[in-house]
Every structure is written in structure tokens, then in C-alpha cells.
Amino acid sequence: MSTRTAGLGALALAALALLALVPRLGNAYYLALAISLLQYTVLATAWGLFSGPTRYVSLATTAFFGVGAYTVAVLGEILPWPLVLLIAAALGAIVAAIVGLSTLRLSGVYFVIFTFGLTELIRQLVVWFEVNKSRVLGRYVFVNITQADIYWQLLALTAAVFLLGWLIARSRLGFALRVIGEDETVAKHCGINTTFAKVALFTISATIMTLVGAIMAPRWTYIEPSIAFNSMISFQVLIMALLGGAHRLWGPVLGAVPLTLLFELLSARFPNTFTIILGCIFLLIVYMLPRGVAGLFEKLSTTSAGKTTQRVAT
């Protein structure tokens, strides 16, 4: 087992080193595509970190992403970059902790609707503040950060997310969450502090999403609430994680990569019928792959395993 882990670790490091060379290709288009791939990989994986084991469907991705982007819009030109990222992460964590404490007692569709509303709530608060207090709407971010810098930061964050996910899955927290996901009442009876476990993971996942927003913000120069709080992000991340399979750490990647490439292909080849084709694909995913690509892999491996045991039995 430990040799396998070491092997996987070595493989991951090699992949990381290889991916770090992408900006050296010198093609801005591929770099942009790679940034997009990493962005959605991190977001979907972070989404899966919380929603996978607990089975809470969250539409708050945009809210945290936007908080990160707006932190950069406000502080990006004033403070040094690492400090801006740190503040963004802290803000994301605080918001997530408050939201988590007050809402994770909700479950099912109530939670979904609340998280969707949260995005709108934060967006309206930002608008209200900008309109009535700072009297500017739409801020400019002129920071000295190149596309390659954005890419490398996202790559580092990707590595961090996977490491974190891997560690959590092996910790008491990860186990507690799996129990909660199976049956929350049972978990409580086992003496698990369910609220703490849920809020902790929600906060971790949200902090990562906030960081993605902060890292991506310098790409646009101009930020206004409708750009930073674009609810499409929540839905795209959700569908990516579902396609990949949120119950596995590596599941969301299997959804994020093909779907990002698909979005890219559709918007390049079918700019006028993009949304129609997209809708049909979503329908297909939900009907054909209810447990995602990861679920499909597992099914295939269990059926082949089943066959072998059968053969042994006969």
C-alpha cells in the first residue's frame, strides 16, 4: 500500500512538473485554455470536497469566487499580492463559517436554494455598498501579474487541493463526514459533532473557491458585480462535479476537463447554438451517468471483479 502511495505521489509530482511547463509553449490560446481547465478543476474538486461526502448540493460557488475577485478589485492595487491573497482567503473563510453555522442545519432542497440566494445576497450587498458608500461601480485592477503567473498560481492551488483532499479523506474529519453523508442521525448517535465537521469542511472548500476568484481577477482588468458574481459558474461547477462523480476526490476532474474542453469547442464551432447543445448534453449526463464517470469506472471494475469471483466459485 505504501509503495502504491509513493508511486502515486511520484506520478503526481511528475505530472505537476510537466504541467508547469505549459506557459513555455508560448501559445497564449493554449495557456488560456489551460487556465480555464485548472480553474474549473480546482473549483469542482473543492466543491466535491464538501458536497461529495455530505451530499449537500451547494450553489454558493459563485458567492465565494466573487468575494475573492472583489477583494482583489478593492485591495489589488494597494497591497502586495501575497497579502491580498491572504486577506481574500481569510474573508472567504469568515463568510463561509458564518454561512455554514447558520445554514448547515438546513438540508435537501432548502440548502440548495439558500446557497443560490447567498450569491445574490452578497452581490446586492456589494452593489449597495458601492452605490451608496464608495459611489463607484466597476473597479479597475491594474496589477503586474502575467497570464503565466495566473497559471502557476492555479497549478499550485490544484496541487494543494488534491493534497488537502487526500489528507482529509484519511483523517477523522473525513471519516466523520462519510458517516454524516450515509446517515446524519446515526452520526450524531455515534458521538460525532456533526455541525463542527460540516462547517469545517464547508469553510475549507469555500476558502479554496475564494482563492480561485482572487487569482483569476487580474485576467479581466475591470470588475463589476455582474462579472464577479456570475451565477453561471455555480451551475457549471455543479454539472462538472456531477459528471465526474463527486463521491471521489479525483471524480470532479473527470468532469471538469472534458466539459471545459466541450464548452470551448462548442463556443468555437457552434457559437449560435451553444446553449441548446449544452442543455441536451446536461440532460444526457443526468440520465446516462447518475453516478458520474467515476461511478462508471467503479461499476466496470466491480463487474469485472464479480466475474472473476464467480469463475473462482465455479
Binding site: N27, A28, Y29, Y30, L31, A32, L33, S36, M216, R219, W220, Y222, I227, N230, M232, E264, S267, A268, P271, N272, F274
Partner: peptide
Amino acid sequence: VHYDDRSNAEEAVRALERLINQ
């Protein structure tokens, strides 16, 4: 050659990078 930026800043930037490089 034209694309739809879907009123989205990220999409607009990427479409331009596609126009220029591809």
C-alpha cells in the same frame, strides 16, 4: 470569423485569444 462572448468577460478574453492565436 466571429464568436459569441455570452456577455461574459472571461469568455470574451478567451475568444480573442482564440482569434489571435488559432
